[in-house]
Design a protein around this nucleic acid. Structure first.
Lengths: 231, 231
DNA sequence: CACCCCATGTGACGGCTGTCATATGTGGGC
DNA sequence: GCCCACATATGACAGCCGTCACATGGGGTG
């Protein structure tokens, strides 16, 4: 392969069915970029000059509420697409993205990506699928976040994380994801104090424990009971 | 035109750039259906056999929260697309749709719509645009609904409605849209009692008045002040 | 080790808002 | 006109949770 990014592209579902020649060309105009935890990938309102694919790490997409508080919309891992919406319609980014782990992204200039879209039906279909799935996810998230007890929202959040990326370990289900108390609050639409209070109580009651590299779900039944109650 | 639905299709932005022949064929397998206020168009979880285009009226798309309360995600008017997500991925509907006014929809069988998609790039692009816009809207809505004072959310809702469909009339800005107290509560993520309380107070304070056929915004400044405060 | 900075944790307090109960009004059917 | 069903409205009350204030701890730097 001529360009080192070409084999990276080949591993990304969206580009898997694109011709090797096209991938090669795309890789030629793309470049990798690294982000440390907390660093911004792009900011809401910025012009969308690039289309991003997460190669490694995790990135949160969030929006500032009218009050100034941050609300996390989604967290994407390796293979996730960022800026697809903005790139396709060539409008400013509708939200901000920041790394929550040390992460690497592949940046493709918008014109090059758009040109490839023009004559690659499989790419369009892949993009359509990706948007579709995000729409379904956001839909579910909206219904889940509005109203309801804060503690129920926390329970549902961790149950979801457990299903998505949990593995049996340390006397429970270990979720290998570092999230600060502030980020947990941003995910559930509450304040850091309320978040800390719930996490402290759960830790004391052996429901869920915070460790340096993630969380351990100790009592899944308790979470399920909390998730279904409230409001 | 052979099929009466063909000229309806021609008026819908999504199908405007599709060849007349294809529209004709699509119209041949589609049919119109009427819904009275409150009637369901489709329900969450149902198999998505049809793709819907709103010809006239207004339809709310909502989801039942874990608690059982309904949360309105979006309200679509004439030209709006329903079931696009489910139809494209051929998965069950992720939410429920119901008419909030006497409405008419054009129903196209999924296979016919999908076949046309296969060899109509402009249709794919139109669908992509539509999904993109919905994603941006939902994103904004999510940030707006989570947390914050209920009264602020109401203020922002009516300010948005005023911009979208308001016209100067009756001593203020008239919004020609009938929404029950329950629907307003579902839009803002609260209960009907809190909704009624706010609407009553606003009516007394000459901020906003409910009429038989819509709402009249009397004091836009008061709404703006309320919208920016809280949380 | 001392120092500082930031994240985490805890307490007190108040008010928004959900819940329950009940009243009033309005339209439809007979 | 009468009655019923439903939407709208209002009051009382409790408790969750946002706000403010301050304590604790741990990692990095000097």
């Amino acid at each position: 392969m001529e360009h080192p990014a070409a084999d990276l592209l080949a591993q990304i579902p969206l580009f898997r069915r694109v011709l090797a020649d096209d991938r090669e060309r795309l890789a030629g105009v793309s470049h990798l970029r690294h982000y440390e935890r907390g660093h911004l990938v792009f900011e809401e309102g910025d012009p969308s000059d690039f289309f991003f694919v997460i190669v490694s790490g995790r990135v949160k997409v969030f929006k500032r509420a009218p009050s100034g508080h941050e609300r996390i919309l989604e967290i994407f891992g390796a293979g996730g697409l960022l800026g697809a919406v903005a790139a396709y319609e060539s409008r400013p980014f509708p939200a901000t993205a920041a790394a929550i782990e040390s992460s690497t992204c592949l940046l493709t200039p918008r014109p090059a990506f758009f040109a490839l879209l023009e004559h690659q039906p499989s790419l369009v279909r892949g993009l359509l699928s990706s948007l579709t799935i995000r729409l379904v996810e956001l839909t579910a998230r909206l219904a889940e976040l509005t109203g309801g007890r804060v503690e129920s929202r926390f329970a549902r959040l961790f149950l979801k994380l457990g299903v998505q990326m949990g593995r049996p370990d340390r006397g429970g289900v270990f979720v290998p994801m570092v999230l600060s108390r502030q980020e947990l609050a941003d995910l559930t639409g509450t304040t850091i104090e309320t978040c800390i209070r719930i996490m402290s109580r759960w830790s004391k009651d052996h429901v869920l424990h915070t460790e340096k590299d993630g969380f351990v779900i100790l009592d899944r039944g308790a979470l399920e009971a909390l998730a279904s109650q409230g409001f």
